[in-house]
Amino acid sequence: MLSHERIWRAIDRLAEAHDLTPSGLAKRAGLDSTTFNKSKRFASDGRARWPSTESLSKIMEATGSSLREFTSMIDGAASGTDYTQPALNAAAGLAEPSHLYDMSLRGVPVVGMAQAGGGGFFDDAGFPVGQGWDQVQLPGVDADNNTYALKITGDSMLPLYREGDIIIVSPTASVRKGDRIVARTTEGEVMAKILKRKTATSIDLSSTNNEYDDLSFAITDIEWMARILWASQ
């Protein structure tokens, strides 16, 4: 089973196999040098972050590694295998280890958050419907058939989410106090927030950007809420 720790360790192994630090690997891939820093692997609230699909694609391209080779490193992160350059060569087909497996990429519907507020993309319970959805490839994140993605707009969730980040949302996952969620109001506004409090009559939402005040809604003013499972960084 994939895990946050194993994915990040595989990135470290890929860097080591090419005599690079994680910062050096990020630079080679054209990413910010801090992309893979230890501090970027957890949010300010201590929750684990996942690397983005875009960053994984770029480091594989920059090092000439295939998805199969990268997944072998994920497997090695659990088994303790040392994936040096000879092992990478073996993974490429010279002496292929029998335990290699493919990590499938799954297409998930994605739409801009501002666009989503226009209507026609969700049913009354927050499940994706209609036309106009694009697709994003999602590796290594548990998802059901109703999972979808939204592109962040605005800065109310800085530094957690930035303009253009993609969040993966599940309308079937349970939502609890403190969860990061997407909420849609009856007026059609779609927003990413943190569920601060929910009672029988009201819902309080907060932002991670201190420049934004908390929001309070009557329960009847919220059409639906869905939990955020994962976000690109």
Rank of each mutant, 00 (worst) to 15 (best):
I167Y: 02
L195Q: 06
I181R: 02
T34S: 15
L229M: 15
D204E: 14
T172F: 06
A17D: 08
T35M: 11
D165V: 03
I59Y: 01
I181D: 01
G130K: 08
F42L: 14
Y148V: 04
G80V: 13
I167M: 02
A48L: 14
I74L: 11
K38R: 15
A29P: 04
S174M: 13
P51T: 11
D179A: 06
E96D: 01
I168Q: 03
Q131Y: 00
G80K: 11
E187N: 12
K38C: 06
Y161A: 02
S174A: 15
S52V: 10
P159W: 12
A218K: 13
M225Y: 03
A231V: 08
A218Q: 10
V110I: 12
L160T: 11
A77C: 09
R227M: 14
A91E: 02
D221K: 14
R13I: 15
I167F: 02
D19Y: 12
F36H: 10
S156F: 02
L25W: 05
I11F: 11
S23W: 02
A17T: 09
P86S: 07
T186W: 00
E69I: 09
Q233C: 05
A17F: 07
A77P: 04
L67I: 11
G30M: 13
L195N: 05
Y101S: 14
E187F: 07
I59G: 04
E96H: 04
S52Q: 08
M103Q: 13
T71C: 08
Q85T: 13
D82K: 15
E223R: 15
M191P: 00
D204G: 03
L195D: 00
K193D: 00
T153I: 01
S170T: 10
I167W: 03
K40H: 14
D213P: 07
I203L: 06
M60Q: 13
P109S: 04
T220V: 07
D45R: 11
S72G: 15
L2D: 05
L105G: 12
D142H: 14
E69H: 02
L105S: 10
M60W: 00
H18I: 05
E187D: 10
I74E: 01
T84K: 12
L88C: 02
Q135P: 01
